[in-house]
Design a protein around this nucleic acid. Sequence first.
DNA 1: AAGTGGTCTAGACCACATA
DNA 2: ATGTGGTCTAGACCACTTC
Lengths: 244, 244
Amino acid sequence: MTYIMSIHNPMSSPSLHQRILGDIEGRILSGALAPGTRIPTEQELAAAYGCSRMTVSKVLSMLANAGLVERRRKAGTFVRQPSSQAAILEIHDIKAEVLALGQTYRYETTRRATRHGDADFPGGRGGGRVLEVTGRHFAGRKVFCLEARRINLKAVPHAEAEAFVDVSPGRWLLDTVPWTEAEHRIHAIGATAAEARALGVDVGMPCLVVERRTWRGKTPITAVRLLYPGDAHRLVAHFKPLGR
Amino acid sequence: MTYIMSIHNPMSSPSLHQRILGDIEGRILSGALAPGTRIPTEQELAAAYGCSRMTVSKVLSMLANAGLVERRRKAGTFVRQPSSQAAILEIHDIKAEVLALGQTYRYETTRRATRHGDADFPGGRGGGRVLEVTGRHFAGRKVFCLEARRINLKAVPHAEAEAFVDVSPGRWLLDTVPWTEAEHRIHAIGATAAEARALGVDVGMPCLVVERRTWRGKTPITAVRLLYPGDAHRLVAHFKPLGR
DNA sequence: AAGTGGTCTAGACCACATA
DNA sequence: ATGTGGTCTAGACCACTTC
């Protein structure tokens, strides 16, 4: 594995450790650094990037704090399994969640269309074209959750070439597009007739609605609405606010 | 305002910046440093704590990252308003939430008892005594949410002296006891007969259940179950995973 | 025993926002 | 113009853990 030394250009506004952070983060999120892979030591990275050890140490600490890597003395720094990438990501990968329950996982797309963005999301008014995908996630024979997603084609143009027949757009985006910001809105509703039919439950069944929007910088990437039958699902989030 | 210089004792296991972090964090959470207060400059803090500027800089960065303080060049570092203390705290202070909706807030305790801890929480098996408090949060004349809380009296002994008549135990704990870790479990249920009666809604109404446990280090502090009528409430959480 | 991360220092220069 | 945070360095010592 080679590490391209980044040329120190004082004119480039992002700070040195931010550029290094973005570099390594990109390698992890893109899969170039697979889970379990050992990352070079701080000394090696400092030499590769031509900076001091403290700078790469800061970067690796941030990555560890975000849950992307795990650090062990004497052993080294390792890319973590995506299942526990971060507190937020715990509720991101539905496939991993279903498999963790010991059930078989399947995804199917039920609708796929492109249209022009509305005043809402992504992109605000006058936003470009938007890909809309709805689908169902199965755990065994039961529907685990319904997904309705909009993807900003301006930010992710190559999404248009994806059919999403058996890979969910959520998984595909996670693997493809790094994001820097996310917002969750969570509430409870009773299933409408159509939702109940799609989920295979009774009308009025209490359901959990998770609406998530993600950005890369200030660019909206995607918005998704996930509908879970309430009795079959619990969201779990673990927080260590100050990164201790 | 005086800043006690902490004596550098190499035997104390927590690192220097962790002790400084805990110190300043405690002053903020306890209210000794009120929102809006300006914190001394990095140079002054370094001199006060007898350490290098980098060390206090790291601490202040962590506090800023957690949303407890705001830093502005040339102006200084200021304690932030608690309303936006952190992504997690957004869903912590129910009173602020209700007031933000422009409604009047009221809390009433409906039950208060002490008993011995069970095998669950806090403290695991053989845990000490536990204070149980249930109550209702009102927004105007409507019930905003039901609260059922257990407090580990071993960790927070002075909770026993609190009557919690018009201050909610959640608010009281936030003001009194710093926590370092929290876990949320969120799901949807239909209101039972008793819950529907207490909330003033129909039986079976979809409701959001938020169960939160908090720790200080490895010591369990409190566990709470909040029940919101689903149509009246949305949890919102905003994330910037890498603290950029 | 040795290698790794964890921490800390005493400086330095810079960007930026305010006074 | 000046004071503040933001960043970076080139070292150093230590703790931990696995080799």
